[in-house]
Design a protein around this nucleic acid. Sequence first.
DNA 1: TTGTATGCGTTATCAA
DNA 2: TTGATAACGCATACAA
Lengths: 356, 356
Amino acid sequence: MNKNKGVAGEEPSGALMADVARLAGVAISTVSRALANPGRVNEKTRAKINAAARQLGYTPNAMARGLRVGKSNTIMIILPGSPYYGASQIIPQVLQSINKSLIQRGYNLMIANLDREEASERHILDLAFSGTVRGAIIFSSKLPEIEGRSPAGAGLPIVSMLFDMSDAGLPSVVTNDREAIRDATMELIRSGHRRFLYIAGPEGNYHDVERYAGVLEALRAEGLSEEAVSRSGGDLEYQHGFEIGIRAAEDFMKLAVRPTAVIATSDDMAISFMSIIQRAGLVIPEHVSVVSFDGSPVCEFCSPPLSTIKQPVEEMGRAAVELLLGAISQTQDAATTRTVIRSQLILRESIAPARD
Amino acid sequence: MNKNKGVAGEEPSGALMADVARLAGVAISTVSRALANPGRVNEKTRAKINAAARQLGYTPNAMARGLRVGKSNTIMIILPGSPYYGASQIIPQVLQSINKSLIQRGYNLMIANLDREEASERHILDLAFSGTVRGAIIFSSKLPEIEGRSPAGAGLPIVSMLFDMSDAGLPSVVTNDREAIRDATMELIRSGHRRFLYIAGPEGNYHDVERYAGVLEALRAEGLSEEAVSRSGGDLEYQHGFEIGIRAAEDFMKLAVRPTAVIATSDDMAISFMSIIQRAGLVIPEHVSVVSFDGSPVCEFCSPPLSTIKQPVEEMGRAAVELLLGAISQTQDAATTRTVIRSQLILRESIAPARD
DNA sequence: TTGTATGCGTTATCAA
DNA sequence: TTGATAACGCATACAA
């Protein structure tokens, strides 16, 4: 049955189920059953079949199975556009976590990039409509849509991660942005800070709205006016964090009365911000305290070590996988939910009491 | 033919080729030909077919095609074990670059992780033997092998990237490690440095061997003794770069005569190294110059900005894809080659003349 | 408990 | 240039 038994020039292409069946002396369907429903086949024949399969190094053909059962076992993760090393030093961690969870559940992970080019949207939609993928975890604030085709139209379950897209009908796994920033801001206020610079992600973005709201809540709670905070940024995406931080530093230096504390909405922003203002002669945290968002590993080794709100990316990845596989296995749609996993504020030397 | 035409409770699952054929009033095989070999079908019927396909939003089923033609169009990238955010802030860039190249050529990218657990090796081998993937780009210094099964045994073309594995028979895309480090070291020697600390990756590793050889070559070229360089590290993998740098800093502080220049074999090592020795009161570059390897974006914003040898990861990714697709399309194996793409030394303020 | 037979959606061979 | 038909490798309904 296996046509490639060593013919020169032919690549060997593993044993087939038929080969196993013949070696075990049973029908092909029995092999199939033995492998899929071990309970529904005689123990002795099952042993024979397993032995034969092992001997031949048999591995079921995934495409044949997929075609037959009408489902793929591949999940796609949609990452933000190029280059995405900016905002997310955490992407490798997320991939790692998601991939591991998926493998445990018998799934594979495929990568897709969503940038501004139409080709990338088309590719993602093809992945969906060609039946290549069974579900998607999206990591970007926009959904691909082109010529009226959308992943939802392909009947593809999608879960959003990091970005809350429950408004768009996607179950989302996010962290408690608002609360986390509020707590960090209150921490700053309690240590005497009264004037703040907030370095924003893209304006109107869920996270920006939530995080800025967190700042305002803290001000209100502590009896300060909203005037206490200036904003910088708002026009670039998170993946351009370094650039946002650079511009924020310029804004900062120009302010008549300088804030004593800076709240950056990604680590990258804070890192380039600190770098620039230090070159300009300012000292952190003496002249200005800095706290940021993400919790990338490098923060620990910044100078000074950077306080950051650490997103629990591993947990978020696991939660996203749970949600997605749940939506896949159930025929009814999962209720549109927002799963919140708490961040953790890591205090380091970039924060000090205000010295007014 | 499409059984799911709006029946409540049934998810719509795109149009089939048969649907297109019926709408266009031709046979299925004609549709197939029109889509695959547009040249071999009458222009008018082709137009009809295209119109029908567009109208129905037809996308070919990838698994059916894959099964029929006996090939998948998915490439897998094998990333080093968990957590791999350490040594490679550059991984997202690499993924980006590879994915983009692959998509242009009609392929998809699947992720696999290779850590110390047997499950991960098994998963990778299953991906290979199940026909899920057509080729692999490997990013790790070891190959999965378990129970005698190996990717090569599955007839799977593999290309190694970053790591030179041409000894193991894999075409490899690497950078000019030795030369790059040699040039950087000579740069240091020329500006007066005479004592060096070399922070190593895992001992015996190709890169470590090459890079250390580069240091020695530079010393020799400038008439210095090999005694001029001390080594630190050697027992941890690159993904533990931060930890390696921390230990190196401890080693450094203990040395009787301290080196005036440090050569780290990854950015992470240098970043944590600088952080620790600065906390100990040393000043960079006054007391010690630092240069590292990788070229991650964050180096620009270290304090001081970190000199680094930038690996051209985008180019390397493209080259790896070219090599792999070449090996896939040709029946004969590609000659085992080593493709070298030159790194670029980026000089920043972490380097200054020795002040002896 | 096991075997036979059919079909998943596509491509490719062969006639027409 | 087009159409009927047979695989691809597996899973499952049904018969034995």
